[in-house]
Amino acid sequence: MVCSGRAFPELAEEVASLLGVSLVPTRALTYANSEIYVRFEESVRGADCFVIQAHPAPVNEWLMEQLIMIDALKRASARRITVVSPFYPYGRQDKKHAGREPISARLVADLYKTAGANRLMSVDLHAAQIQGFFDGPVDHLLALPVLATYVKENYDTSEMTIVSPDAGRVRLADMWSDQLGTPLAIIHKRRDPNKANEVAVGEVVGDVDGRVCLLVDDMIDTAGTICQAATALKNFGAKAVIAAATHPILSGPAPQRLNESDFEEVIVTNTLPIPDGVNVPKLTVLSMAPLLAQAIQAVFEEGSVASLFNGAH
């Protein structure tokens, strides 16, 4: 049985359609004081339940709704509950950078477990070690095959260079480079520790002169990093710059920055809904529903999820 929260029902509907099932009829309300109520309107006893919820802003509200749905399923005697969170909430808070800080990604995993989840499914976790935070099976899916297929079909990869926007994404860029058989470049930047969401771009390490540069990242939030990186690549002689990222958070100034940027195209997936009122003509959104549906089908049939996806584990 496939259940959906209210954050992004269109994705859940597409997944359910591909699986040939209907979403479980659900009554969900937000009371005047902002408390959430959920009731499933058909029996889930003994069922293998998949709870799909996107986590756009306000993240806390949609996370709480998903936890309440899991609790409702557990108390209604569901046989197994799998959390499907394409964009893992609090995934960037995966370690302590300074004293007296939380590790919120671990807390979220504990909340899922306490609510009653048996299994977790997510796409492109910000840090792979988050898989170890959840006490149970974790299906870590990758958007790379979906994004790379689109790039291969629409661009000449013989003149392409994959670019990591910072040192932290080199592993991702390396996987892209293997997938497309292209050279790799890195942008070395320094971040001001006193200013959140502000970065300073430094040097480009690698040959980008006269090349089509593909900047790769796991998410685009305020788009500051990636837009500054695009400018740097242009300054270093790139012929064209495109971007590929899994999660389109697109907070605050992101739409304006992308529209004013040097990008020819920005390719993302629908792990998150594009926020209302956001209009970025150069944005291309690819669907992750087929990948999620395949993974759900494999889990339901007790098959191998790893064998389905290139690089997923």
Rank of each mutant, 00 (worst) to 15 (best):
V83A: 07
F87Q: 08
M121Y: 00
Q129W: 04
A16C: 06
H126A: 06
D48S: 05
L67W: 05
A76M: 06
P102I: 10
V84C: 05
V44D: 01
V51M: 08
H55T: 13
V84I: 07
R80L: 05
M69C: 08
D124R: 04
I36H: 08
M121A: 04
Q129D: 01
E42G: 08
L120A: 03
H97L: 15
L63W: 03
Q66Y: 10
P137N: 09
R106S: 07
G136A: 04
S43H: 05
A57D: 15
P89Y: 03
A47G: 13
F133Q: 01
D48N: 11
F134A: 00
A32L: 14
S122A: 14
T26I: 09
S104V: 07
D71V: 07
N60I: 11
G46Y: 03
E14R: 13
V59D: 09
N60S: 15
I70C: 09
E41K: 11
Y88W: 07
I68E: 06
L18G: 06
D48F: 04
A128C: 11
R100L: 06
G20T: 07
I103E: 01
P86Q: 00
P86A: 03
N33K: 15
E35M: 10
A109K: 00
R39F: 11
L63G: 02
A105M: 03
E42Q: 13
N118K: 07
G99I: 13
K95L: 08
Q66N: 14
V138Y: 01
A127F: 09
